Amino acid sequence: MQGSLDFPPNTEERHCLADGAWLLKGFALVQAEDLLATIAEISAQAPFRHLLTPGGQRMSAAMSNCGRYGWTSDRLGYRYSETDPLSGARWPAMPESFRALAVNAAASCGYPDFEPEACLINRYVTGARMALHQDRDEADFSAPIVSVSLGAPIRFLFGGPQRGNKPASWLLEHGDVVVWGGPSRLFFHGVAPLGQRAAHPLTGALRYNLTFRKVG
Results as ranks from 00 to 15, higher is better:
Glu82Trp: 01
Ser60Leu: 12
Ala105Gly: 05
Arg49Gly: 13
Ala139His: 12
Arg68Ala: 14
Ala105Pro: 03
Met94Arg: 06
Leu132Glu: 11
Ile42Pro: 00
Leu36Arg: 09
Met59Glu: 14
Tyr111Thr: 02
Gly88Val: 03
Gly77Tyr: 01
Trp22Ser: 06
Ala61Val: 08
Gly110Phe: 10
Pro112Cys: 03
Gly20Thr: 06
Tyr69Asn: 02
Arg90Tyr: 09
Thr126Phe: 04
Trp91Tyr: 09
Ala21Met: 05
Glu41Phe: 00
Ala107Lys: 09
Leu132Ala: 06
Cys109Ser: 11
Ala89Glu: 14
Val30Lys: 07
Ala28Tyr: 07
Asn104Tyr: 01
Glu82Cys: 07
Trp71Gly: 00
Asp113Met: 00
Ile42Val: 15
Leu17Glu: 09
Ala102Phe: 05
Cys66Ala: 12
Ile42Gly: 04
Ala18Val: 02
Thr38Asp: 15
Arg123His: 08
Met94Lys: 03
Arg75Tyr: 04
Leu76Ser: 15
His50Arg: 12
Leu76Thr: 15
Leu36Asn: 05
Asp6Gln: 11
Arg79Trp: 05
Thr72Met: 04
Ala32Val: 03
Ala61Ser: 12
Tyr111Glu: 05
Cys66His: 09
Gln31Arg: 07
Pro112Asp: 09
Leu132Gly: 15
Leu120His: 07
Ala93His: 13
Ser4His: 13
Asn104Met: 04
Glu115Asp: 15
Gln31Trp: 01
Ala32Trp: 11
Val103Ile: 13
Asn10Pro: 00
Ile39His: 13
Tyr80Thr: 00
Ala44Gly: 05
Gln31Tyr: 03
His15Arg: 10
Pro54Asp: 08
Ser87Arg: 01
Ile39Phe: 05
Gly56Trp: 14
Trp71Leu: 01
Tyr78Cys: 06
His15Cys: 10
Leu36Ile: 14
Gly56Gln: 05
Ala139Pro: 01
Glu41Thr: 07
Glu115Ala: 14
Ala40Ser: 14
Ser97Tyr: 02
Met63Tyr: 00
Ala61Gln: 06
Gly88Tyr: 10
Ser64His: 01
Ala89Ser: 12
Phe27Ala: 14
Ala40Asp: 15
Leu101Ala: 02
Ala139Asn: 12
Leu17Cys: 07
Tyr78Gly: 04
Cys119Ser: 11
Cys66Thr: 14
Phe98Glu: 02
